[in-house]
Design a protein around this nucleic acid. Sequence first.
RNA 1: GGCCCCAUAGCUCAACUGAAUAGAGCAUUUGACUACGGAUCAAAAGGUUACAGGUUUGAAUCCUGUUGGGGUCACCA
Length: 597
Amino acid sequence: MTNPDELLTAKAAEAVKALYGGGAVSPSLQVQVTRKEFEGDYTLVTFPLLKMSGASPENTGKAIGDWLVANCPEISGYNVVKGFLNVSFSPAYWKGVFSEIASNPDFGIHAPTGKTIMVEFSSPNTNKPLHLGHIRNNLLGWSVSKLLEANGHRVLKVNLVNDRGIHICKSMLAWLKKGNGETPESSGKKGDHLVGDYYVAFNDMYKAEVEALTAEGMPKEEAEKNAPSLKEAQDMLLRWEKGDKEVVDLWKMMNGWVYEGFDKTYCDLGISFDRTYYESQTYLFGKALVQKGLDMGIFEKEADGSVWCDLTADGLDRKLLLRGDGTSVYMTQDLGTAEQRFEEYNLDEHIYVVGNEQNYHFQVLKLILGKLGFSWADNIYHLSYGMVELPQGKMKSREGTVVDADDLIQNMYETAKETSMELGKLDDMDGKEREDLFRMIGLGALKYFIIKVDPKKTMLFNPAESIDFNGNTGPFIQYTHARIRSILRKAAAMGLAPGSDSLSGEAELSAKEIRMVKMLNQFPTKIAEGGAAFSPAVIANYAYDLAKEFNQYYHDTPILREENQDVLLCRLALVDNVAAVLRRAMGILGISLPERM
RNA sequence: GGCCCCAUAGCUCAACUGAAUAGAGCAUUUGACUACGGAUCAAAAGGUUACAGGUUUGAAUCCUGUUGGGGUCACCA
């Protein structure tokens, strides 16, 4: 069955042609969902048609409305308000739409496109634990991947771990000096936190040294360059690059601790990757491309041996691609990895989930890849998300205002537990089951809180106010689902279950039920919309609207106490499908819905 | 300073490609369990969409300027 909006667009085009003639059928037929406060299902905006009709908006609307009712059996009526033609479809038509939704177990999921898309996200440094910013990145990367899968694409989720560099050496050095052999086992600390503590310890040490040097009369800038611990860290990096066994062993051991910690956090968040890349293995990529660019004449070499790409003609700056000593920089490496990935996986698209502070970097990356002649340069997309800010502004590790990921997850669990225990609905549930439920609700609240915001926008998190469990929240949707499941359990106990014959009766859908069918019917469109914009927020807001619609319906429509068997079965089928769509929508966001809570 | 992004109710967020009276939630005030689950529902109040112009039948949305905020401009990643 054709979608109502498509049907109306097609029929309206016919109407315009029949009424106003000519081959000049206006391409600007605007069909939209009728606003709540007006009667009707879909609305045709008549303003763009006035020149053609030569009549007032009211008369144009009337003429088209009359034609539609006369020539289209699915359309049962219309009204015109100002220039808006509000069209109603018949209840029988909507029942047909619903029956199609109900018979499709994968309703909303799009057919395979054959496209392969790589999504890179998370990409942590191995010198400190994950924080709230990483949580937004991880949740976005994960849900965008799921959303693209729902759009029929094959998705590869990858992580690029920044496991080398001076910052890693800093924690290693501090551990050597002050660690006394401390390990996660000996201290009981989670590995990533342990290593993070030594990174902080390094900075304290370094700051003290700089202060001591400036006290002796050395200018601050010079002191910052000459502090002995920094020198030692730099020396350690050189030894690492030479493969010095002692340094490499230490590096492996400490990174191992960090990975164990990260794995725990990823597991808590319900996140995994198809492949993990390590910069220690990819940081030399891209050097061949530098030579290629030089040969093509798009890069230039300075007297000191450094290589640059001049982008001033494109309104940007000159960009360094190779240092004077022949070592590569971040950009070089990204150019190389992109080429390597497109070749190895024959990618159609590559999405980088990276904060908007790197907009410039990705602009340059894309531009240079284009200049190097790669046709796929246009198929890389920087999913640039906004920072998570605190009431006092940006999170700053130096000022201790970073919201730790593990703490936050634990916190959400505690709050979920408290709330649930207060309500006391779970007294007959066993311990393990309860723990899982608290985790599900806490995570649901956290994930929804983050994902419902448009990725591009800066968002605010206030640690002083705990994340809500009422209103437009994850638990609201989880609760709605639990409620529906409760009804269905009771129905099953009465020997009633929605099935393929639930809609075969005479029952006609009420206005409220049509509204819900209409909303259900939008699900595939929402998935397409969210996918096109790489915005899981579209799905989150849709799920909320649907849940809210159900709760209103639920409040004043008896289901189990309905005496007419046909109507009862029809209602059961309807709420069953609402639950199924909620599950599918929230599944895309990585949020599970409970049977009860 | 150059370039980029942002500004919507007290607060957190919506508003498809320009469309009807700019919508939700939280907080505030009020009402609803002898009811299929009150983590719910119903209602009140809350707005010159930062400001000033412009384009359009129609602007939160597009254009110009102003103000305020953020980002970025490393031989860091």
